[in-house]
Write a protein that binds this DNA or RNA. Structure first.
Lengths: 302, 302
DNA sequence: CGATCTTACGGGATTCGTAAACATA
DNA sequence: TATGTTTACGAATCCCGTAAGATCG
């Protein structure tokens, strides 16, 4: 049975207009074309759908029972294809991304705002999880892309760098070290230190750096959240080392930031995606947005 | 958006086979034809559905979300059209008919049996109602045809005669009149009479005939049902005049039948249908069955 | 006789298949 | 290099529109 959409559409047009002649207009077709279309349709389905004389046109009982079915079929057909088209044209769709907390807390909201302004119909889900989990979510296909730092190259993942993020020292303005523009690791090692709890990658990087310099960190407080650390630092109970992208967040809490030197510590932040899997139009659009704006999101060097 | 069934079918074939080349077989198409079909489809919907290299083929996220939708669309499409085809080929459908009680009680079951043997998938509904109601059900479109006697020609209904049905006298074998082959109205007028209750048409015809002969009927009992009248006659409390088509029913109850003469009384029995409305395939088949077997259903003249 | 559907037929667009080119693992 | 997809192109098919024919009210 080889029946086309157009034939069924013609059937509907005629049934709704109660006339071949009038249906021509809605179908943008000549009368003979309609006639042939219906004739072929009737041959395919095995019986007449209309009884027609020159003056009257009526549906056969079979045509009558088919009418609502045909209407439903075409409605579903049209809406399904419209929906597909909307996904491509970003008038519809879902975008799931993961971001490590330091990114989600700092730069991400601006990107989201600008994406939503451009594509308000796209539903966005953010997974604010630690870097390792973000990467795993990409690998498992739970999100299309993750915003996190660069880690070891993987055979199934791609890292697209956006910018380099430096670590900075966070302290209260009343702190003795606050008068300096640059603060050394050596100086930090003598201070009460507030650290992110493992398995944070920031914690890991700081401890590795400390170890390389054969220093010891005086960790007196720990927390899971950068915002909590900011509050602790603001209260003056200790200092911390935090990503520069979160500088705005810390300053809002009354915390001051100083350059960390000898050596400075930084990491590349970018986009993790799966190899050999295409991005959805929505994800691609977000990817492009991130890339094209990354130059303006350079970590301020203070 | 002009998208054909064939294009979506091609999309499904490729997605299910994970290959253009293999999908060719199921689509009975060459590779280039498939390639072009998908290319056109992708252009219509506004984006890629597959990412393909010579060695790998995968769905895009959009293609992936469209896959189950497309599957459902085609399933519904195919089953709807198959269903329509089944209606025409009598592999499916519903037939609603009305029949006056005397017909429904006598000849109809045999017709139904033979129809069901030929078309077992057709669902049949019988409305066993008095003749006037049967006609009204046709007029209202509640049934496609009615089996009843001929009445005044109507502008919107058609009567197709099947056979002529004579009225006969029903009495118990012990009855004094049982010895006669033919019984006159005059003789009946002297007997206790068992009549169908109004608004039965049989009652009407009998009373009209009696009146024309300026006789009086000695109605002592009345009932709504022919079967009840049969029981009453069998018990010997009176005699009745009944349609000859019900002769078998009465004989089974131990009632004997005699010819009614001076004058004989008969009516044409046939099919009532709507003018200007086509019959469904099922109704048409039943109509044809009735017509082609009516010769063998001639009322026995006793 | 007039309005409407159907048949006939020529032109045009679409689609097909073969063959060649192309791309990737 | 070998497998599988895409492009090129000639051919067949299908579909459309104009014009003529048929039919019913």
């Amino acid at each position: 049975m080889n029946i086309t959409i157009k034939q069924v559409r013609a059937f509907l047009a005629i049934a709704n207009n109660h006339s071949f002649a009038e249906a021509c207009a809605t179908m943008h077709l000549s009368q003979p074309a309609l006639s042939i279309a219906i004739k072929n349709l009737e041959e395919e389905v095995g019986g007449k759908l209309f009884v027609r004389s020159t003056r009257t046109l009526a549906l056969t009982p079979e045509g009558d029972t088919f009418l609502p079915v045909a209407q439903r079929l075409l409605n579903e057909w049209d809406s399904a294809l419209q929906d597909l088209n909307n996904h491509f044209s970003l008038n519809r769709g879902r975008l799931a991304i993961a971001a490590m907390p330091s990114f989600a807390n700092s730069l991400l909201p601006e990107f989201l705002k600008s994406f939503r302004d451009q594509h308000p119909k796209i539903n966005i889900t953010i997974h604010d999880v630690i870097a390792e989990d973000a990467v795993e979510m990409v690998r498992a296909g739970k999100v299309e892309l993750a915003l996190t730092f660069e880690n070891e190259p993987s055979s199934d993942l791609t890292f697209t760098p956006l910018f380099t993020d430096h670590f900075i020292v966070a302290l209260t303005p009343k702190h003795a070290l606050a008068s300096k523009q640059n603060i050394t690791w050596q100086a930090i090692a003598n201070e009460p230190f507030i650290a992110l709890q493992p398995p944070s990658n920031i914690r890991k990087m700081i401890q590795q750096s400390i170890a390389e310099q054969q220093l010891d960190l005086n960790i007196e407080f720990e927390s899971n959240h950068l915002a909590t650390i900011g509050q602790m630092v603001a209260s003056g109970i200790g200092i911390s080392i935090v990503p520069a992208i979160c500088r705005t967040l810390f300053q809002a809490q009354g915390v001051q930031c100083r350059r960390l030197i000898e050596p400075s510590l930084s990491r590349n932040i970018g986009i993790i995606t799966r190899k050999r899997y295409p991005l959805s139009s929505a994800a691609q659009a977000f990817f492009t947005l991130l890339e094209s704006n990354s130059y303006s999101q350079q970590t301020p060097k203070i």
